[in-house]
Computed example of a mutant assay.
Amino acid sequence: MSFSRQGIRARLAASDTSTTERGGALQRLRDAVTWVTTPLLPDDYLHLANPLWSARELRGRIVEVRKETADSATLVIQPGWGFDFEYQPGQYIGIGVLVNGRWHWRSYSLTCPPDWSTPEHGGKRLISIAVKAMPEGFLSSHLVSGIPVGTIIRLAAPRGGFVLPNPLPEKVLFLTAGSGITPVMSMLRALDRRDLFTDVVHLHSARTADDVMFGTELRALHDRHPGFRTRLHLTAERGKFALTDLDTEIPDWRMRHTWACGPAALLDEVESHWHSAGSADELHVERFEIERSAPGQGGTVTFAKTGRTAAVDGATSLLEAGESVGVQMPFGCRMGICQTCVVTVRSGQVRDLRNGDEHREGDKAQTCISAAAGDCTLDV
């Protein structure tokens, strides 16, 4: 029995016009493809029909890159087979981008509400992230100014606990700075869609008005919903926002459930301030970076299953070391929270970048927050 490339493409395209649907029809299609493609892998033929169709990994296509500020942009992505559109506002996804023959992975907060679509993209279900280019961030700069529309990327499923409860608390405060607005934007858009703004206050800090991501949309939400107030603090004009000013700016802040996201130094201050006020239980924090207070001595990291090695300094995480030599490393939050990146240390020792704790042969280590403390080998 023989099958032409054009015939396979036509049969697949005709069999399922909604590649994000789950259930029996999708599974029957996958089974049929497996049967007719032996000895080739099903993905070899699925890719010919549609590069977003894959039975072994999540993929997506960049369909729009929209500037938000001079150094930030929204990326609109059309996910392929298997993506769960019923995520919670505030969660993040992992994206993998092929640059110069190597896959680079990062995690970014979703900025869209669940099950989102737009008429300008044909009503297809989409997702969006917003990226701020960082001076030391190779991938973030590439995503903001260099990635072309149509690029196929890899995706990791939505995850994270920085989400709103159901039902929504009577009083809510969002406290954000810089790109920390991104997970909160997903929440605000979801509240807007369901008209759930009862008593919501948003206080955002940015250097100048031109640095405010989603500034126009925030003002429109403020004008449209009596139950939503957004306040902007410009640090170039007024200096860093002092948490002691909360009593003046938002007198009832102690009575509000608060979601805070921004630079690590700000979040440290927020946690201390809320704890001192006896309101720590009402505070929810999302961090984009870990505090690296205890670097290791560095060394050569060997990745046992691939045989690849990376010589790194003591501040480079094991996750970053693996990705730098093309090892497919497990990861989730990249912040030491979700435990997705845990691997076994086969030999040598590694050090937790946050507190200096060391893990030796046979121990489990979180690769996103651990670094080499001498030469070591990982079971990955």
Rank of each mutant, 00 (worst) to 15 (best):
C112Y: 07
H142D: 05
F197N: 01
W81N: 06
S72F: 09
R66T: 12
Y87I: 01
I250P: 01
D352M: 10
K305M: 13
G24D: 15
Q88H: 13
R154T: 07
D31H: 06
K132V: 08
C368N: 01
P135L: 04
T74K: 00
R193D: 11
D281M: 10
H104D: 13
G123P: 07
R238F: 14
P135C: 08
G101H: 03
M335S: 15
S179W: 00
G180W: 02
M187I: 01
D210Q: 08
A260S: 15
V65A: 01
I95N: 08
K67Y: 07
A371R: 00
G307K: 04
D16C: 12
Q328P: 11
R231P: 02
L29H: 10
E217H: 06
L139D: 02
G94Y: 12
W259T: 01
G122C: 11
L283K: 00
G298T: 01
F214C: 14
L40V: 10
L110F: 10
A13L: 15
G227D: 02
A10T: 12
Q339W: 15
I95H: 06
P135F: 10
T244R: 06
E271V: 12
R254Y: 09
V65H: 04
V36Q: 07
S370C: 13
A190Y: 09
L126G: 02
G322Q: 06
P167K: 00
W35F: 15
G356C: 01
L221Y: 06
S370N: 09
H275W: 07
R66Q: 05
E291K: 10
P39Y: 05
G161V: 09
M187K: 02
P165N: 05
I129E: 01
R224H: 11
L29F: 09
A310K: 00
H121C: 11
I153W: 04
G348S: 05
D379V: 04
L110Y: 06
G137K: 00
P114T: 09
V65P: 00
S18G: 13
E68D: 05
R102I: 07
T248Y: 11
V184M: 03
V144N: 01
G90P: 07
T244D: 14
T306D: 00
I369D: 02
